[in-house]
Amino acid sequence: MVDELEALYRAKLPEFRRVATAIAGDRDLGCDAVQEAFATAVRKRRSFRGDGTLEAWVWRIVVNAARDARRRRPAPAEPAETRTNGHAPVVPLDLLTERQREIVFLHYYADLDYAAIAEALAISPGTVGATLNAARATLRQALEEVRT
């Protein structure tokens, strides 16, 4: 089991770090959250019942660790409109709900399909699809407004 976790870590570390960074809002916090999440997975490996895939189980732990990291993060000093996450210009992410953001990140950064996202977030695939569509619509509209 530990070997399988290590293989997953080595194969998909960039994706895990990218999603965790996006959720945590900080690259260092995101990377640390991934390390902590895999440590938790190693520690609690016996609680993995095999209902779903090991990867989905790990994704759920990573998402939770990144959420915890974001909550512990000190509040940003600049206004939300100018927040850039240190990587990009003006970001309309605040228009999305927490669930919308997580689904967007898991879909675009980890390339997970609806079923895998649903498993990772413990929601139904239908909810994933509907939430993703709503998030896309919101983002497109916000990005159009930014350009104009």
């Binding site: 570390l13 690259r27 895999f38 990587h87 967007v104 950064y109």
Partner: peptide
């Protein structure tokens, strides 16, 4: 989205885990 959080290919540290 690509610009928002760029992909990093740095090696991980499994021993740290």
């Amino acid at each position: 989205l690509e610009q928002l959080v760029p992909r990093h290919e740095e090696r991980g540290d499994w021993d740290d885990v």
